[in-house]
């Protein structure tokens, strides 16, 4: 039977997943069959994808990629790998979204922010003490390399204005608006919708404080615009930004981006 085992096509005379493990691996190996980790033996069909992972061992690069992607259904993975997503702003939303998109294997990411990591970022943004003073673009690129070295990450350490939106983002399918200031959000959404006729925008509005998680939603108010958040709770004196709701909102944005990459347009 034709199987893909750890990224390589093989012809094997095995009927079940555990027979393959017996032949090629050891009894403690984790077995992932078509994206799902199995604990009980399963019959195999022609064309199945099987991944055997030896715990505690560093695999070589080629094998590592197939092991990392083993958790994605094969067709889903191929679509995501072709995805090109730009993230505008690398604060609480953008840094967490970038890491999620890297984990699912989005093929090309553009990370844009002009700022450096400072202590007040650590309450919600995906950086460490060792990154203080570093450009957010560089700090995030460094982390992504350690999470998924198999995707292309480009960075631009510039301030985004009306004048450079088109130039920065015209090669990307999806622009993720992850700014902090409402006038900046409005500037990016307006400019991108006007100047980039094919691109979809996934923006955020309203995630401050610690009101109910369930108020945060994904909406599609316009043709090519998605907005995630509770649409109400802005950051202000007495209502700061905190990791949980910011990350819930980042999760909404990342999932909407994933859906768009898979061709699903409703939220």
């Amino acid at each position: 039977m034709e199987l893909t085992v750890n990224g390589k096509k093989r012809r094997l005379e095995c009927r079940t997943a555990f027979q393959v493990r017996e032949k090629l691996g050891s009894p403690e190996d984790i077995v992932i069959l078509n994206g799902f980790q199995i604990d009980e033996d399963c019959e195999l069909s022609n064309g199945d994808t099987l991944t055997l992972i030896q715990k505690g061992v560093m695999p070589d690069a080629e094998e590592l990629e197939s092991m990392m992607m083993a958790r994605h259904s094969p067709n889903v993975h191929n679509k995501i790998k072709k995805g090109k997503v730009a993230i505008a702003g690398l604060g609480g939303l953008g840094s967490n979204i970038a890491v999620m998109l890297a984990r699912i294997g989005v093929g090309q990411l553009l990370l844009v922010d002009f700022d450096v990591v400072e202590p007040s970022n650590l309450n919600r943004q995906c950086y460490y003490v060792r990154h203080l003073g570093m450009a957010k673009t560089d700090a995030l690129k460094e982390q992504i390399k350690e999470i998924n070295p198999f995707i292309k990450v480009q960075t631009k350490t510039v301030k985004i204005t009306e004048d450079n939106v088109k130039e920065l983002f015209e090669c990307y399918d999806i622009v993720c608006e992850a700014f902090d200031k409402p006038d900046q959000k409005s500037m990016l959404v307006n400019t991108a919708l006007n100047e980039l006729p094919d691109c979809k925008i996934v923006a955020a509005s309203g995630m401050a404080g610690y009101e109910s998680s369930n108020l945060i939603k994904t909406t599609k108010p316009m043709n090519r615009l998605y907005v995630c958040g509770d649409l109400k709770n802005g950051a202000k004196v007495g209502n700061g930004l905190m990791a949980p709701r910011v990350q819930i909102c980042a999760g909404h944005q990342a999932n909407m981006i994933l859906r768009l990459l898979l061709g699903i347009e409703d939220c």
């Binding site: 995630m207 401050a208 202000k236």
Partner: peptide
Amino acid sequence: LEIVQFVGGG
């Protein structure tokens, strides 16, 4: 008309 109003935070 669809009017989206942004509030701060990110």
